[in-house]
Design a binder for these strands. Sequence first.
DNA 1: ATAGCGTTTAACAATGTTGTTAATTGCAAA
DNA 2: TTTGCAATTAACAACATTGTTAAACGCTAT
Lengths: 196, 196
Amino acid sequence: MSIEDKILAAAKEEFYRSGFDASSTAKIAKSVGVTHAMVNYYYRTKEQLFLRILDSHVEKALAVLRKVMREHGGIEKTLTKTAAALFGLFNEDRYFPFLLLDASRSHPEYLVRYRERLYEPAKDVLDGHIERLKESVPDGNVTGLFETVFSLSYTPFLHVPFLKNVAGYSEQQIDEYLQRRKEEMLTLLQKRYSNA
Amino acid sequence: MSIEDKILAAAKEEFYRSGFDASSTAKIAKSVGVTHAMVNYYYRTKEQLFLRILDSHVEKALAVLRKVMREHGGIEKTLTKTAAALFGLFNEDRYFPFLLLDASRSHPEYLVRYRERLYEPAKDVLDGHIERLKESVPDGNVTGLFETVFSLSYTPFLHVPFLKNVAGYSEQQIDEYLQRRKEEMLTLLQKRYSNA
DNA sequence: ATAGCGTTTAACAATGTTGTTAATTGCAAA
DNA sequence: TTTGCAATTAACAACATTGTTAAACGCTAT
């Protein structure tokens, strides 16, 4: 792996764990074993380095969502697939939810750039199929259901640092925990849309 | 309000919005309009100032939970009351969830001190009444249900900065949003425990 | 071998951070 | 009114931060 790539990987770790403001390019460089000038040499500024990482993650998330949303099934299938896709996405980068929350709280200006495109995948479903979907959901609160899916997909990963560092879970216990949460989420969804 | 109290209030804001590491005692002092030496004069160190704030919040949260958990009703009542209590707690300090997440990710050592006491209110219910509760829940996953309640109670508040600063919600829209989320959570719970 | 070019370092500047300390202020009690 | 003490400031130390720049390094191609 080239130094350029090593810096990117180390930066990912650092930004994941500390957020933008509390991260230090000097520490990133140190963890790679080079002078901090290398960070500026390859990525100009801390901000550009951060945005590059954020960008690739958001692109990936959007791609996943678009794919799921395009499959036009009933509310049940769409919700379940969305839930599984989101959970899988976060499971690949377990600190990604932290990154998003940190950005939304401390640097919303970095997220404004995605505004339109964030709503776009959802629109496919919410506009094109919302009428049919509404019939399957008691109170017609389809967007609310999607937000519930979103929330229940990422909270397990927010809890990982606590479970690991405070409650003392082992890696295996963490994995079991995440699996339980996924199943509980899917069970809950079934109940929600399957009866009035 | 005394300067001592003003510093505490400003620190709350700053820690809420930036987390421990990204917060600066100098900025806190500046926002109050005093020299940063005052922070050290009244609170010794940044750490002690932070812990004082964290402590009072955790105490309050534990008190609320203890109160709810002590009322020995069925699973339905206990869950609903817990949900409402947690939502109300976070609604009073809307950045509190951020504070907890930040601490659990970047400073778990600050949370270890509460470890035993965090589980204590839950134990009241989960040990003393778990058998009876289990009968009301299909797969007997009572702890899972409580965690779902917890997750759905705080995520709306995590979303507020995004909705305000990226999506452009007004204060009123935020309040309406929070109300919707609360109701969706309660609806969802009803479905979950009311049928097999 | 050497000229050239991309890479890397060391050093610097400007700024910000936390915490301490000596000096000053201002009020209250004797 | 003057002594005394709490409150407040200004200045300082030690260090970390980001970003820039000139120099050195090391490899490749001529």
